[in-house]
Amino acid sequence: MLIFSITLFVLATVLGYELISKVPALLHTPLMSGANAISGITLVGAVLAAGSGESGISTILGLFAVIFATINVVGGFMVTRRMLKMFKKGTK
């Protein structure tokens, strides 16, 4: 199981490196906020932690994880699209 996870980790890192090298400097700020939104995928882990139905500290931590991960997802995607809308080509 561990080796499978490591394989995924390495492959995704290499793929990410290739993809992101092609992003022009023009879009580096939206790239950061967009990447930020994507790292909000930790929301999946947060939902698993908060939703277990148990009571106690782990559910409370899970609830806060859900809140902060959602801020990341919603805030990240919204601000990225708000920025991208501003980039316009010259009319020539």
Binding site: S5, A12, G16, I20, S39
Partner: peptide, 10 residues
């Protein structure tokens, strides 16, 4: 793992 690594390399 996949999304985290993508962002990590970004």
């Amino acid at each position: 793992i996949i999304s985290g690594s993508l962002v990590g390399s970004a």
